[in-house]
Amino acid sequence: MWRQVLARLGASLVVAWGSITVAFLALHALPGQVEDILAGDLDYPGLREAIAAEWGLDRGIGEQYVAFVTRIASGDFGMSYELRQPVTDVVASQLLPTVYLAATAGILAFSIAVVLATLTSGRGRVARRIASIVELTFASTPVFWIGILLLMVFSFNLRWFPVSGAEGWRSLVLPAITLALPTAGLLTQVLRDAIEKTLDQPFVTTLRARGLSERQIRVQHVLRHAALPMMTLGGWIIGGLLGGAVITEKVFGRPGLGTTTLNAVLSHDVPVVLAVVLLAAFIYVAASTILDVLYVIIDPRLKAQ
C-alpha cells in the first residue's frame, strides 16, 4: 500500500512541476515583451526596469526558467506591480477567508447529500421524483442567482443576515449555502444512484437475512460502498467550490481569493493571476492525491492489488 501512496505523491510532484513549466512557457509564448505582459495596463516611471531586474530578463531563457521554478518552489511569487506588494502576501492574506467559505460549503454540501440521499433512495416513486427535481434545479442554478435570491429573502427582507463582510458566523451563512446548493444537488444525485445500485447487491440481501435494520444497512454498509463514486467527483467538487467562490465572494462583497482573482484579471495584474493559477493547480493536485490515498483506505479491494 505504501508503495502506491509514494508513487502517487511522486506523480503529483511531477504534475506540479509541469504546471509551473506551462505557466513559464505561456508567459514567454505570449506575443509581446515579457515586461509589457507583466506590467498589464500599467505604466509608471521605472516600472519596466523594475520588472526586468526582478525577473532577470537579461539572462538566458534556461537560466530564467531555473530561477522561476526555484522561486515558485520557495513560495515567492514575485511582486504585483499593480498592488505594489509581494504577491505571496496578497494571496496569503486572502487564502483563509476562501478556505473557510469553501470548506463550510463543502461540508454543508456533503452533509446535505448524505442525509437526502440516504433518506430518499429506494423509496416511493413520488418522493424520489420530487427530490430529483429539487436536486436538478439546484445543480443547474447559477451560483450568482442563488446568492441574490438568498440575499433578497434573508438579508434585504427578513434581515436575519448581513449583506456583506466576513465577520462572525452570521456573514458566512448565506455565502456558504449559496456555494453549497449546486454542489449538494449534484452530489445527492450521484450518491442516491450509487446507494440504489448497492442496495441491489447480493450482500445487502445477506445483511437483511442476518436481521440488520434498514437504518443499519444503509448507514453502516451501503453508504461506504456508495461513497466511492462521490469521491471520484472530489476533484471536480474542489474545482467547483473554488470557481464558485469567485462569484459568491463578488456577490457578497467578501474578501478572498475569488475577489482577488477577479480584481487581478480585470486590472490585468498578471503576476497575481499567475500565482492564483499555479495555486489552483497545486490545490487540485494535492486534493486528487489525497483522494487517491483515501480510495485505498476506503476500498479494501485496492490494497490487494
Partner: peptide, 18 residues
C-alpha cells in the same frame, strides 16, 4: 464597503444596511 454587484448595493441600501 466594496459591493461590486449592482443589485446587492441597491438591496443593501433599501434594507438599511448601508
Amino acid at each position: 464597503s466594496f459591493l461590486p454587484e449592482y443589485a446587492v448595493r441597491a438591496g443593501a441600501l433599501s434594507s438599511g444596511q448601508v
